[in-house]
Design a protein around this nucleic acid. Structure first.
Lengths: 225, 225
DNA sequence: CATTGTGAACGCCTTCACAGCC
DNA sequence: GGCTGTGAAGGCGTTCACAATG
């Protein structure tokens, strides 16, 4: 068949692709050449049927009786995720979280580059983190405006999050990852995702407080316990 | 009706409850007495039907024609989340991320307490963060074993995550929040949730690389742009 | 008359199970 | 024989729309 036209990939699948990607990377590094859906499922913490259905959305890359070629599949998954090009990540808010993100291994192993760091505290301006100078947010528009394919990361206090978000959008950022506990408004053309420590703790508290209604046991890898 | 018996609450609803909780807290602080589902929806970044359906899982707390009593509903949501009791949070891995988490506002405003901090680096032991001493992971079993209702937070490198996880489980932690990019095995009695910076960036990259298959525009609050 | 609570319809993801292929 | 790809079935959350209510 010619290149698939407008295959839509379910969001849950999209979220699992990075997990497969990491598992495949590990397998590849270990010199493993082939994986079955069952093995990949084990490594990714899901079930085999899900792996096969997920991968079938990308194309027909497996071989019946054998499985998937690790490095070939890895390449396909990375291409699908858009990791065959480089992404520029700009981080706003250089508190402990911003430092942690700037030094993340993600920048070493994936096609993401820390491109610019910002803060509003004059005391932090000029400090160097991960080889990059911390700039004042005033410079954000100027600096980020010249960067293409930039992803903004908000690591500021919640009170400043919408302002930071507006500056990022204004500067042409194509996607935003928000770590601040705030609901942000963005134009539909900008992708937005949320990571919230407090929400996660509360969800855990809920399930511990309601042992009778545990969610799906979540296909876990073999526990050695 | 008598106390609801074993109402099961859908996981997506559970994840939204903390968001409603925060919105209600803000409204309450501002002195607002009543909210409609539409207003709460706006504040939480979802749609009104979802708010009503979600809240209906907790009980019949609204008044037709009027809406919901803010402080009453806040109390119900907090009780449902298990926030009417105090939770002890232990953090393992005191790099920048661990520092950020230990100093999180969550501990100031919710019923979570930072109870103990651990690292494996001798150079960090004894350092004081957020009023707590950093201890060596060797002490984890001893220290955490004596804490009830403890939630473990893994902020270590991925390579150490499963070991840390095992120690936490061994020590009787009831839930674990994992920030390391690793798939963890835990017994079914322990709640586990995952937060992964790298996965989030990759998901954003996917959607930017595939503008034609954007996910649901996600009911956003009124954009001022 | 504004707003809730909810049954029903809808859409979507997951799981199953097996035909087809190596 | 082992394993993939997938149609079909099943399950579940979201959305709709309206009767009920203060």
């Amino acid at each position: 068949m010619a290149d698939r036209v407008v295959r839509r990939i379910p969001e849950p699948t999209v979220v699992r692709l990075p997990v497969y990607q990491r598992a495949l990377l590990t397998l590849s590094t270990c010199g493993v050449q082939t994986v079955s859906s069952a093995e990949l499922a084990e490594a990714a913490g899901v079930n085999a049927a899900k792996v096969r259905k997920d991968l079938s959305h990308l194309g027909t890359y497996g071989t019946p009786g054998t499985g998937y070629d690790v490095s070939f599949l890895l390449g396909q998954v990375r291409r699908e995720l858009g990791l065959d090009r480089e992404w520029q990540v700009v981080i706003v808010g250089m508190g402990n979280l911003g430092h942690a993100l700037a030094r993340s291994q993600t920048f070493a192993t994936q096609n993401f580059r820390a491109a610019a760091l910002f803060d509003i505290d004059p005391g932090k301006i000029g400090e160097e983190v991960a080889g990059l100078p911390v700039r004042h947010v005033c410079e954000l528009a100027k600096v980020v405006g010249g960067i293409s394919r930039s992803i903004g990361v908000i690591a500021s206090p919640a009170s400043a999050a919408q302002d930071v978000c507006n500056r990022l959008v204004e500067a042409g950022t194509v996607a935003i990852l928000n770590f601040a506990p705030a609901i942000l408004a963005v134009p539909p053309s900008v992708q937005l995702r949320q990571v919230d420590f407090s929400v996660e703790l509360q969800v855990l508290a809920f399930y511990v407080a309601h042992p009778e209604v545990t969610p799906e046991p979540q296909d876990a890898p073999l526990s050695g316990l």
